[in-house]
Amino acid sequence: MSALQQHPALPSLGSVYRTRAGVEVKEFFRQRESVVFTVFFPVVLLLGLGAVLDYDIGYGVTFPQYFMAGVVTAGVVGSSLQNMAIHIAGERSDGTLKGLAGTPMPPSAYFVGKIVQVLAVTVVTVGVLLAVGVLVYGIDLPSGTQWLTFTWVVLLGAAACTLVGIAVSSLARSGRSASAMITPLALMLEFISGVFIQFSQVPTWLQTVASLFPVKWMAQGLRSVFLPAELAAEEPAGTWELGRVALVLGLWCVLGLVLCVRTFRWVDRADR
């Protein structure tokens, strides 16, 4: 190649990753709509439903105590699935992705930035929810090894939902249409997965539908840390099934990753 001159070295992967992580975290937390939508929606849910449905579940468990698992699940789904689907669709339709694809930024850096963003948003959302739960309803926090279960369920659930969210973003024409598509879908899944109501009150056939998707398993895994062991009897299998929680969430990670690799596009479909 005669025409190539000596080029100065391109910046290291690590430094580009740091740049993208900074961009993604700033982009999220500076957009009031996304902060309100993602962080405060589950908080309002907790306060609203907690105030209306203040009854005893049994074994001295109050509704807010039961509801914590659901509302944390909703927080994780919002931080990962909805956040990714809506914002990546928006970045694809407004040309941000196309612009990045024309720079020497390594493609992996874009996804590293998104992962850091999801982690940051998840930590903030879950942190606020736990704080509100403790301060307003005096809920019992997990203790000892329950924190370990709490952490892996949240991380594995967030990973699965992030990957599915990235894949789903390719189906929408714009951020707005992604929002119109994914928001009702997420609410519906949350509803049949026992996020807003007791899962045992969901009709059996809907429980079966819900158990195909990750939301139900995330909520079930989290119930195991917020509820006394006696309430495991109310679960469909009569136990918390933590092994199956890990298995199903893991499978959704694999499925999401495959879908991402096969469907991710830097350029809008209308743009051919």
Partner: peptide, 17 residues
């Protein structure tokens, strides 16, 4: 890619940065 620059017609205009 480091040697080329692209000014897009659409452009990224919805940034909070």
């Amino acid at each position: 890619k480091a040697g080329i620059g692209i000014v897009l017609q659409s452009g990224a205009g919805d940034s909070a940065l």
